[in-house]
Design a protein around this nucleic acid. Structure first.
Lengths: 199, 199, 199, 199
DNA sequence: TATGAATGAGTATTCATTCAT
DNA sequence: CATGAATGAATACTCATTCAT
């Protein structure tokens, strides 16, 4: 479909070159349509960006909200559940790399767009907070005075490692980029639960 | 000094409004000088951005490279050293918030600037890798097959939590932003060494 | 047509005021279109100048290359043929006075434009050289050791007299500017073949 | 002397790159002095250009006004005298090549400068006219109804051939540029008196 | 739906000139 | 005489958006 074609081209260029460096003319040239056509599908340049964010947000939140998908149980089960969740996230990131690149590394843009991304990241953090809280209630995680900071640390870890895995920056000798989804999920979950000492 | 005044105004505006949304005229108006004066001190808009990055990079790397500042010892000592280092970093971030905002959240810019930031983040990761390696050699951290991923996870954690502490996004109920440098360092180091289970 | 309208305005202003003293805004104002419209038709200010040169060059060379248009014959016939050629050139100059003014008196411009004019003048000289050579082969002109210098002298004469005829500088008492095409051709051809003594 | 150093640098750059493309900063950098110093010696950029023209004009007119330097006599003597004059002019051009380049090829500049050059060329033409007239009165040249056009043709010839000799444009195979002053004078005078047929 | 010519506000950069020292 | 920091008017070019067809 013409519209989704334009959306696809736009995400890719926004991610690769930035929002401001992407001209409407670039998008329509690549799509092989006229300038005017763009404005039949989208009200403005900002509108297409917001639509991209909205699309991605719904799909990513659905993944996160599936949560640990496991009932009461041992720490081991908790870890397994968490690993499954992380794998889902890494997989989503891999299949939506341009959207994720935008979400994780692009921010110097128009206020409306900044705000959309900010809101989306808050929702992500909330979703993780809910997951952690449920795990605490089920006795799978120790109580803590501060749920917020736990969630913030967790989301920091995940966002950062996903970004490095897919887009760098990565030191030249590193081979992080070549890991599979499962490997990344395993390594991340170890750090998540046991920290540096547990590695 | 005229030049550092222009630099200060530029970092702040670049961080607050983005590089592209900052006009040279904004900078010189705020400084109360003529347009031409800007070009007496800087070759171009890009040049001032690169100078800002270069300045910040040297100062931040100096902080990281001071490392854990502790000899052989127990895990407890290791944690103390790490806490000191993290506190130094949080303090630097607090005192250079506009530069940190640029480094951690600004990316939709010109290629040369993107590259300067990318290089800087690689150097940061390398510096952390060196710190971890030294700790392993001193027997303060368990060996690990993968230094790179440990460093990547660690840097992810630190960058993310610093960004959330200073610039959000943060869920409305969260009070992360009101924590002191020492509190942040303590909470982060716990997660760093013991993960979620250790909290 | 919009494009040729812009070209016409541009040659005239370039000739009258110089390339650098002609602002894009002058051109578009005179044409009654917006600034952006200029850039729909031309990549840049330099591009329109080069297009002007290219157009004129093709047309002027066509005139010169028609040559003396006469077979073997007496000196008289040679003179007649030459007079016809000169008349064609004077006529072309009259009908394209702004282009000729640019070609003959404009030079303080951008390197690319200087080069385009230089190339064009070389081609003109070559075309005249071909004409002379053909006349020598037909026995209408005496052999000479140096074709190049003959052509150079001839082109000098023609360029200079055309420039003076159309654009001055001309001493106040002179009435050269009022001569017809045919008169100019006749006087020039006399000098061309017989020099001062033949006048 | 500082002033004449600045004048020398300026003529050269005006000739090589054009008036508009020569920045005051270029001139002072090459001279190794500060921007402000320029304005101690010259009121403005235009002023230095006018001074350059004034200097050259006086010296060149002196050469032309020396005239044919010969009394009544044969055609042969007339030719000799003319050859001497031409040689003086070619020599002057060789020794003042940047000034001559300006005079002969640079024109797309400010109105005041255009006018100064125009006036100078009119004066040159007048000087030649005087020379021709004297020769006619002495019976060395045939009478002619039109002195103006003779002078115009003569000056065209000289200006054009000097320009080609020193600055091109010249077809690649041509070796005009390697001629000596005397050779150029001889070839030019032949054409001057006898035209193409006399060569 | 689709086109593409036309718009015009917006901006980085240049450079002759000034002037306090 | 000499400096060089400061000025600010001037200008080519960009690009999101519109609209008649």
């Amino acid at each position: 479909m013409r519209k989704s074609q334009l959306l696809d081209i736009a995400v890719e260029r926004f991610a690769k070159y930035g929002y401001q460096n992407t001209k409407i003319s670039d998008i329509v040239n690549q799509a092989g349509v006229a300038q005017g056509t763009f404005y039949w599908y989208f009200k403005s340049k900002e509108a297409i960006a917001l639509e991209i964010i909205q699309n991605g947000r719904e799909r990513l939140l659905k993944v996160i909200q599936r949560g640990y998908r496991s009932g009461v149980g041992s720490v081991e089960e908790m870890v397994k559940g968490s690993e499954r969740l992380l794998a889902d996230i890494f997989r989503f990131a891999q299949e939506n790399r341009y959207f994720m690149e935008l979400l994780l590394t692009g921010n110097g843009e128009e206020e409306a767009i900044r705000k959309a991304f900010r809101d989306m990241r808050i929702e992500m953090e909330e979703a993780f907070k809910t997951n952690i809280q449920r795990a605490v209630e089920l006795g799978m995680l120790p109580e803590s005075t501060d749920l917020h900071i736990r969630a913030a640390l967790l989301v920091s870890l995940i966002e950062g490692i996903v970004a490095r895995w897919l887009f760098g920056p990565i030191s030249p000798q590193s081979d992080i980029g070549e890991r599979t989804v499962e490997q990344m999920a395993a390594e991340t979950v170890r750090f998540e639960f046991f920290g540096l000492l547990g590695l």
